[in-house]
Amino acid sequence: MAPRAFISFEMEDQWARNFLSQQAKDKNNLIEFVDYSVKNPWDTSWKTECKIRISRTRGTIVLIGETTWQSDAVLWEIAESNRQGHFIFGIQVSSTATYRVPAGLPSTSVIRWDFDQIVQWLGTWT
């Protein structure tokens, strides 16, 4: 069974989170993403909820789109994942553009969208 992952993304890139989840269902593998998204991200308790949800996972996948680098929520989720000592990697959501990597996410831990490579990275979370 693959480890659970928290998926951090800017709301404008929700399509990418949905696509990643669908790819996991369509491929013949053991990858399944559990939706840990906070439904009301700007509710006063969202950080508390995120801390709990991140703690229930082995690591964080950051979906990197055009404005991800400036998202306060994504930056906080990266910092919290690092604070908890979790694994973390990023995925560029565009096949033709390379977007700025958010602070706290090492550029050496960013890959292009390739589901087989995503599975490989998750396999290192032991």
Rank of each mutant, 00 (worst) to 15 (best):
G123H: 01
D26E: 15
S37Q: 13
I61K: 01
F87G: 03
D13Q: 07
F87W: 13
W46V: 02
Q23K: 12
A97M: 11
W113Q: 09
T44E: 14
T60N: 06
I64H: 01
H86A: 10
M11E: 13
S94A: 11
F115S: 02
E32H: 07
V74C: 12
Q14E: 15
T44G: 07
I88S: 06
Q70Y: 02
N28S: 12
W46T: 07
P106I: 05
I91N: 08
T68W: 08
D72F: 00
G65D: 11
F89E: 12
K39E: 14
A103K: 11
H86L: 15
I111T: 12
W69F: 15
E49W: 01
R4G: 12
V93F: 03
I64P: 12
Y99S: 03
A2M: 14
Q117A: 08
R17F: 15
G123K: 08
I88L: 14
P106N: 15
S37D: 15
R4H: 11
W46P: 06
N29M: 04
I31D: 08
A5R: 00
C50T: 14
A79K: 12
W46Y: 13
F19Y: 13
S94R: 10
I7E: 06
V119D: 11
S21D: 10
W76K: 08
V74L: 07
I91E: 08
G104Q: 07
W125P: 06
S109A: 15
P3S: 03
G59R: 02
F115A: 02
D26I: 01
T98P: 03
T60E: 03
V119M: 14
G59P: 13
D13R: 01
M1Q: 09
K27A: 09
S21V: 12
V38K: 01
D43H: 09
R53S: 10
D43I: 00
A79G: 13
S45G: 00
Y36P: 10
T96A: 09
V38P: 10
I61E: 02
Y36L: 15
V110R: 00
G85M: 08
S37W: 03
D116I: 06
A73Y: 12
R83Q: 10
W42S: 10
I78Y: 02
S95D: 14
I7Q: 04
S81D: 02
K39P: 08
T48W: 00
H86M: 13
S37I: 03
E66R: 12
R100Y: 02
N29R: 01
P106G: 11
K39R: 10
N28L: 09
I7T: 06
Q23A: 12
I52W: 00
N82D: 09
G65W: 07
G104I: 05
